[in-house]
Design a binder for these strands. Sequence first.
DNA 1: CACTCTACCTGTGCGC
DNA 2: TGCGCACAGGTAGAGT
Length: 270
Amino acid sequence: MPELPEVESVLQCLTTSTPSLIGRRVCSVRVLRDSVVDGNVRSVVNTLTGTVCNDVLRHGKYLFFEFQNSHSATQSWLALHLRMTGRLFLVPEQMAEDRHTRFVLLLDQGLALRFDDPRAFGRVWLVEDPREVTEKLGPDALLIQRESFLNRLHGLRRQLKQLLLDQSFVAGIGNIYADETLFRARLHPLKISSDLSNEEINRLYDALHGVIAQAVIAKGANIDGVFEAGSFPVAVYGRGGKRCLECGALVVKERFGQRGTHFCPVCQPL
DNA sequence: CACTCTACCTGTGCGC
DNA sequence: TGCGCACAGGTAGAGT
């Protein structure tokens, strides 16, 4: 599933490759599934048509596309979340749409920005300012500093798995990187945050930072034939019943809070 | 505040 | 072969 590293990879691909989305004018907007637009479909079409994409930002798993109206010099922002199965690509406009294509921006230079999503969980919506969204989120997991992490953890009494998945604590971690972070930190997913020693808290920060930074460089996770083309090797996610790469014990998969959770019971004792 | 449950979706893979 | 079903999971929102 696209988490922070995969979303960052999408952002880099759209903005730093050739051709780039930056500077492209929106000729028209196609909405193939109304429900992927949060809010009024017509206002999204009317607002974006004729604008030029100036910039793309990311915070956690959210992307924000800045569009400039060339006449009135006003800006509009399109927010986007890929959820589990959403994919974005900049393609030649004549490239055939998929049965899962949900939303398309037809651009100048014969290009199109396509949003495909089999499960149609992903969403796009207009915001006046990305802060409407980011204010509700914690710091971006790639950028959060140790001091901020320690301060935010202070006073919380939460299970570590749940805490890492909480986007208002730190933004960008999903199920894969939560499990990978806890494995690297040698901490059990059900451990309570307020019970951690200073040494364990620092281990958790180091693991989070290390996992996310490495996964960004690798352009995402490498999950057994599934999804993204990234090369970050997972140690526990999706490896229930297989041997722990550190100690050889069997990796456990259990459901904690409606979530498949993978961990090594020997390396990560409770 | 911390946690749980449900709804939103559909492709996949299993057992029968 | 085909059917039914559990499962995958991010987030919002309601409830405990």
